[in-house]
Structure formats: C-alpha cells, structure tokens
C-alpha cells in the first residue's frame, strides 16, 4: 500500500495529458514517448481500417488514410523543433529537419501502401517508395556510400528482379492469396507492442559517449590517422570537447573504405565468400530438374 501511494504521483505525472507535447506544444523533455505512444496506436488503427477498407468499403479506407494523416501530423507536432538558430546557415539548419521529416513520411506512407495494397505490383511500388525514401534519410545522415549501395541493391536489383518474378507468375486476375490477409489485427497488435517497447527503450535519457577506435593494431584506421605524417585528421579521443568531436561525424566515404579494409578486413572477406556461396547456391537451386527426377 505504501509503495502504491509512492507510485501514484509518478504514474499521474507520466500519464498526465498536459505533459503531452501534442497538447501543450511545449518543447519535449522526457515525455517524448507518451506522444509517440498515441501516434503508434493511431497508426495501428489506421492500418487496420485501411487493410479492411481497401477490399470492403471505400469510406473505411478513407477513414484509415485520414487516420494515418492524423498520426503523421501528431508525430510531426511531437518532434522537437529547433528553437534557436545559429547565425550562419540558419536556412539550411531549418530546412534539414523538414526534408528529413518529408522523407520519413514518404517512407512510412510507402510502407503502409506496401502492406495494404492487394495488387502485388502496387505493393512492390510501395516498397520501392519506402526504400528510396529511406535512402534519402541515409543520405542526410552522411552515409553516402551506403545510401548509394542501398539504392543500387534494393531499388535496382531487388525490385527489378522481384517485379520480373511477379510478372512471370502473375495471372490477369487477382488471386485469393493476394486478397486475403492472415490475421491483420493480431499482426498489428504484435507490431504495436514491439514499437512501444522500442520507443520506450530509445527515449531513455542519457549521454552516449563517442567510442574510441582500436589503437593497438598497427594497421587500424585510428593508428594510421594518429601518425603525425598522416593526412587524415587525428583519431578521436575520449574527453574531447563537443566542438572538437563534432568534426568526427563519420561522413567520409574514404574513411569508411579505410575502416573496411583495415579494421574489418576479415569481415569483408567473409562477406565476399558469403556472396559467392549464395551465387552458386542460387544457380544450383534454380536449375531445371532433370527428367524423371521429382
């Protein structure tokens, strides 16, 4: 009983709607996950309405789409806006979160279309939208090489090949296995629970310190860049000031290449081996069986 009386004000504080940034419009400080919780639940309901409305009734589909829009608006209002602008680059500083937000919305919308659309080709196009927008986000995270590689691998190779198989296997009429979904409500519930867990664990406050790279190996990236004759900037050390460590945002493709071929050489070799084995396996699997072999 005593613990209950202790816990009650905390619970009240946690679930007080006035703490929701959506309601107050105040800058978010530690109550971020409450607003996101609402967004997640509304998104799940929107998915349920849409997947049902697409085949059953048009008004339900419209309701689902507007619920999705509502979830997007709520997410947008829950996300903190920059309050103070630095004197220089103020326009691009303001523009960057907006563009990132647009990419996020586009990716979420594409993903929703992908899991809702009954025509397989439409679903594949929704997937392409989702992946291309994700590539845009990666690009804005200064992961240029991975953005390009993802675009080539997913949007190029995977989508084209899957579309090819869809055309190869697709009849003119819609099939029952395209129209019917297995237990969308249960799946939406599981995904909602997962997302709520992720949101709460991510919203934990706390500083994440930059990690020093391994200096002990002579060929590692950090050791090379600590060489006084090196043209690379010196490796980051713990205890640097924020302005100093801000220079070490991993944004250079050359740095990624160096990390790959010094610190992670064995892993890269392994990845190449796995690719080779997968190629051989795919050829062996897709071969036409000989006559008389079942």
């Amino acid at each position: 009983m005593e613990s209950l009386t202790l816990a009650w004000p905390l619970a009240q504080q946690a679930f007080d709607p006035s703490n929701l940034p959506l309601v107050t419009g105040s800058p978010i400080d530690g109550h971020f996950s409450n607003a996101m919780l609402l967004v997640i639940v509304v998104g799940a309901v929107a998915y349920w309405c849409l997947q049902r409305g697409v085949v059953r009734s048009k008004p339900l589909a419209i309701a689902g789409a507007s619920l999705f829009g509502l979830a997007c608006v709520m997410a947008f209002s829950a996300i903190p806006k920059p309050t103070t602008f630095p004197a220089e680059n103020s326009f691009s500083d303001y523009l960057e979160p907006v563009v990132k937000m647009c990419f996020c919305l586009l990716a979420a919308g594409g993903g929703l279309g992908f899991i809702v659309a009954r025509e397989p080709v439409h679903a594949a196009l929704g997937f392409a939208t989702c992946v291309l927008s994700t590539c845009g986000i990666l690009f804005m995270q200064h992961a240029y090489f991975i953005a390009a590689a993802t675009m080539i691998v997913y949007a190029g190779a995977t989508i084209i090949i899957f579309l090819f198989v869809l055309m190869f296997a697709q009849q003119t009429k819609l099939r029952i296995y395209d129209v019917e979904l297995t237990r969308p409500a249960v799946a939406a519930f599981i995904a909602t629970a997962l997302l709520i867990t992720i949101t709460y664990s991510v919203s934990d406050e706390g500083e994440i310190l930059p990690t020093k790279m391994d200096l002990t190996r002579s060929r590692s990236l950090a050791a090379i860049s600590n060489d006084p004759e090196s043209v690379l900037p010196p490796a980051m050390q713990p205890g640097m000031s924020p302005s100093e460590s801000a220079k070490f945002v991993p944004s250079k493709t050359s740095g990624l290449g160096r990390a790959m071929y010094t610190d992670y050489l064995l892993a890269i070799e392994l990845a190449g081996t796995v690719l080779l084995v997968a190629t051989i396996g795919a050829i062996a699997l897709a071969q036409k069986p000989e006559e008389g072999v079942s």
């Binding site: 994440i208 990690t211 790279m213 070490f248 945002v249 991993p250 990390a259 892993a267």
Partner: peptide, 11 residues
C-alpha cells in the same frame, strides 16, 4: 554510427 561517431555501424 553517427551517435558513436565512428564507422563501426556503417561497416
């Protein structure tokens, strides 16, 4: 990778 400011995540 961006939070930790190194290339491990990207690799």
């Amino acid at each position: 990778s961006k939070i930790h400011q190194n290339y491990q995540g990207q690799v």
